[in-house]
Each structure stands twice: as structure tokens, then as C-alpha cells.
């Protein structure tokens, strides 16, 4: 698989990372290097091997359904850029 420069721009946009023209060319070649590596791994026969969802061969531990967190709004909002009436404020977004 080979990424086009447009693929790189699209991924950068989806990840909300600003990437300049020169950088895009550089990332294109670096990402293609990663994809080459993946292509080599995909050549391995994995028929009959269950896919792993996690690198550790363990299962999730669960917590009991209980309210354990106190209200720490004041502490959290002290470091927020802008708040009003208990809300976090962000630049206006409407779909």
C-alpha cells in the first residue's frame, strides 16, 4: 500500500494536526515506510490465529457500580480557559 500526498493531508485533517507542504512530503515517505513494514507482516500466514485486541493476554477487571467520585468542578474549572455558570465555554460550534 502506498499513501498519496492527499491521503496524508486527509489524515492530518482528521487528526486536526496542521501539516505544512514540506512536512506532508516528509510524512508521506515516513508513513509509507510504516506501511511497507505492515505489508511484510501481512505476508505471514495467520490462518487459524485469533486476532489480538490487546498486547497483554489478559481480561478487563471490572469495578462495582458505585458512585465514588466527589464533585471537583471548582478545581477542574480553575484551569479551564473560559467558564460561565458552571459550563466550560468553547468557540461556538453548530453543525
Amino acid at each position: 500500500m502506498s499513501l498519496s500526498i492527499d491521503d496524508v493531508r486527509r489524515i492530518a485533517h482528521l487528526a486536526r494536526i496542521r501539516v505544512g507542504e514540506d512536512e506532508a512530503v516528509q510524512y508521506q515517505s515516513q508513513l509509507n515506510g510504516v506501511f511497507d513494514l505492515i505489508a511484510r507482516m501481512q505476508a505471514v500466514d495467520t490462518a487459524g490465529v485469533a486476532p489480538m485486541a490487546h498486547a497483554r493476554d489478559l481480561f478487563q477487571r471490572l469495578r462495582a457500580d458505585a458512585v465514588t467520585e466527589p464533585n471537583r468542578r471548582e478545581a477542574f474549572q480553575a484551569v479551564a480557559p473560559q467558564v460561565a455558570g458552571g459550563f466550560y465555554l468553547v468557540p461556538k460550534v453548530i453543525e
Binding site: 471490572l62 469495578r63 462495582a64 457500580d65 464533585n71 468542578r73 477542574f76 458552571g86 459550563f87 466550560y88
Partner: peptide, 25 residues
């Protein structure tokens, strides 16, 4: 009250980790 029931995990402070609720499962 707004944001009075939003802890570090819910507001996504860096470094927090989710722990799954048995009741939901």
C-alpha cells in the same frame, strides 16, 4: 448542576484511565 458530575475521567484529564462498570456489562 452543570459539570458537577463530571470527574477527571469524564473531562479527559491527561493520564486518567477508564475502569469498566460491572453493572453496565
Amino acid at each position: 448542576e452543570p459539570n458537577s458530575q463530571a470527574c477527571g475521567i469524564d473531562v479527559a484529564l491527561p493520564g486518567v484511565l477508564p475502569v469498566l462498570n460491572r453493572g453496565a456489562v
